[in-house]
Write a protein that binds this DNA or RNA. Structure first.
Length: 441
RNA sequence: CGGGCUGUGGCGCAGCUUGGUAGCGCGCUUGUCUGGGGGACAAGAGGUCGCGGGUUCAAAUCCCGCCAGCCCGACCA
């Protein structure tokens, strides 16, 4: 992409409304524009990152055997009356009427819809286990939206639902999701800690939240310092193996780690030596639930078992806050100059800075490099504006691409360009012909 | 929803106390000189001062109402 033909409305000054660094940087980097309280337009740069995160979530979900689909944002109130949540959910649910005065709602979550799909089409235990998920916009009419995309009213979320014949199978689905989520977040360069949490209006007995530790987090968390050393890493796992998934579950949840609502001070003291007790703040980026037959019973989601008798299915649901993740990643990865994107989610992998636009040698070298990299499938943003080098550097630092190539008369006189790593600041000089190989490492 | 605050050009702000020509910085346009960390100079464009009503010869400024947004608290991917 040529920056001169792109749409990247960066701001030099920080808008007054933004309180936390991720919100400030998203606005300054031209990623989002507020449309109303807690509702944002995703400008091209922000949209690219959003899509990258979405893609990773899709890949990891499908790796775990979960099946993608898409349910609508607008739902009929009827199903929610059936589950009893039309009244129970409260004013956080946005209710509206269509032209025929029928009660509708903008979905805050999708248990009712997916359960309805399930009961319409699944009648045999042979179809189980089944996990369906989708990535769709949700609306929750928060009392006070804030912190940009971290607490918006409209937000993009992956929500998935597992249907199993037995509690044992459903527990496995729970563990499998925990493993899958750990992988997902690590791929985005985030360390998350699964914490025992409160189930809120979704209901159910068992639930863990995935928390990114951050000063600006909205949740109060208590944990054993041991948990921060855990890494899933690149281990290979058989998602169908109950034992393998349970082992990971136990490894990551054996130490004390709880959010404020479920925190038990006495237990904390009993189980964690004082030197390892931590009290901090965190950002919730996902949550998994096991809720048994809470929805399947009232809504009649049953299957015929091997003995021919109908049994309600055991269910769980699981969510990842896709749009919130942008904020969480920036909170966890930035410096005084701007965002530092982990490569996996970066809007472009490399930015080319033409230090002297209009200089024939510089222009030619940049054009050639741009074409070569693009042809190699590397996502590259070429800053071909007639700005001075300093302004281009500042823009690149702000938008946080992993690599920057600086091309100018100075280096070209020696036959080299400069490659700079955004995170470490390390720079090396190399011939333009070596660049593609270096970036593909 | 309670408490506090703010709406003035795309962004950041001043002007309001004491009513009388709408201003500054950034950004934007054009030109010249520049050119490796947000350049200099010059000339420009751009504003129903959130909306409605009132007071007044005259309202960004005073009064009333409404709307929007932000912050602090109780709720949440």
């Amino acid at each position: 992409m040529r920056l001169s033909r792109y749409f990247l409305p960066v701001l030099k000054e920080t808008p007054a409304d933004a309180q936390i660094v991720s919100h400030q940087l998203m606005l300054r980097a031209g990623m989002i524009k507020q449309a109303a309280a807690g509702i944002y337009s995703w400008l091209p740069l922000g949209y690219r990152v959003l899509r990258n995160i979405e893609r990773i979530v899709h890949e990891e979900q499908q790796r775990a055997g979960h099946i993608p689909m898409l349910m609508p944002t607008l739902q009929s109130a009827d199903l929610w009356r059936e589950s009893g949540r039309f009244d129970a959910y409260g004013p956080e649910m946005l209710r509206l009427r269509d032209r025929h005065e029928r009660d509708m709602l903008y979905g805050p979550t999708n248990e009712e819809l997916v359960t309805d799909i399930f009961r319409s089409h699944v009648s045999s235990y042979k179809t189980l286990p089944l996990t369906l998920y989708h990535i769709q916009w949700k609306f929750r009419d928060e009392i006070r939206p804030r912190f940009g995309v971290m607490r918006g009213r409209e937000f993009l979320m992956k929500d998935g639902y597992n249907f199993d014949l037995t509690e044992e199978d459903a527990r496995h689905a729970y563990n499998r999701h925990l493993v899958s989520y750990l992988r997902t977040y690590e791929r985005m360069g985030l360390q998350t800690i699964p914490m025992r949490a409160d189930s809120g209006p979704i209901g159910g007995d068992d639930t863990h939240e995935f928390v990114v530790l951050a000063e600006t987090g909205e949740s109060e968390v208590f944990y054993d310092s041991e948990v921060t050393d855990r890494r899933f890493g690149d281990r290979v796992i058989d998602y169908d193996s109950h034992d393998d998934c349970r082992a990971v579950f136990e490894e990551f949840t054996s130490h004390y780690a709880r959010t404020g609502e479920t925190h038990d001070e006495a237990l904390f003291h009993e189980r964690v030596p004082e030197a390892r007790r931590r009290h901090a703040r965190g950002i919730e980026v996902g949550q998994i639930f096991y809720f048994g037959t809470k929805y399947s019973e009232p809504m009649g989601a049953t299957v015929q078992g091997p003995d021919g008798k109908p049994v309600p299915v055991h269910m769980g649901s699981h969510g990842i806050g896709i749009s919130r993740l942008l904020g969480a990643i920036i909170e966890a990865s930035h410096d005084e100059r701007g965002i530092v994107w982990p490569a996996a989610v970066a809007p472009f992998q490399v930015g080319i800075v033409n230090a002297k636009q209009g200089d024939p040698a510089s222009d030619a070298a940049c054009e050639k490099l741009y074409a070569t990299l693009a042809r190699a499938g590397i996502e590259v943003l070429y800053d071909d504006r007639t700005e001075r080098a300093g302004a281009k550097f500042a823009t690149m630092d702000l938008i946080g691409l992993p690599w920057r190539v600086t091309v100018g008369p100075r280096g070209l006189a020696d036959g080299v360009v400069e490659l700079t790593n955004r995170r470490s600041g390390e720079r090396e000089e190399l011939a333009p012909s070596q660049l593609q190989g270096r970036l593909s490492e």
